[in-house]
Amino acid sequence: MGNEKVNVTVKINGNEKRAEVEPRTLLAHFIRDNLGLTGTHIGCDTSQCGACTVLVDGQAVKSCTLLTVQADGSEITTVEGLGQVGNLHPMQQSFWEKHGLQCGYCTPGVMMAAVGLLQQNPNPSDEEIREGLEGVICRCTGYQFIVDAVKHAAQLMRETEAEVQLVGEERL
């Protein structure tokens, strides 16, 4: 048993990818090794550190605790899809501005988890941000500037959304 490969199709950062994988392939390894998107990192074996967090169908999940076959047919967003230099996502912009990272290893996962948090709570308090980051571990920052960054990103995102709405209304 266990030698049959399985076909999977995922839409990753907007691009459709097909591949044949061993059923045991972890999504984190698939993203890194098969798709070459190395921004998603692995930091522990037990689903604690959250460095591997990506969005699957819009929700933050730990890609080291998901088999690739489970994500078949899903839309996946990794840090590479969040925003690019010159066109940064508010979360990336805020992590840069507020010094929310030091070594940068946990950062992609933390940002994806924070994006997931803001989807569920667009205007969190400091305490809610700290609680909301339960699923990530950062060893460098002591979290303070991460909290500042997430708060700032929430504000930027609310402002952008307001702008988008305004533009929409004007068009009406």
């Binding site: 890194r32 070459g36 998107l37 190395t38 921004g39 998603t40 990192h41 692995i42 990794t78 840090v79 590479e80 969040l82 925003g83 690019q84 230099v85 940064l88 990336q92 992590f95 840069w96 501005e97 010094h99 990272l101 940068g104 290893y105 950062t107 992609p108 940002m111």
Partner: peptide, 20 residues
């Protein structure tokens, strides 16, 4: 703001396991 950050926040760092 740090010079190091743009690559790290966009997934373009080059950590050991990223080397193929």
């Amino acid at each position: 703001k740090r010079k190091e950050d743009p690559k790290l926040i966009t997934g373009h760092g080059s950590f050991a396991d990223d080397i193929q």
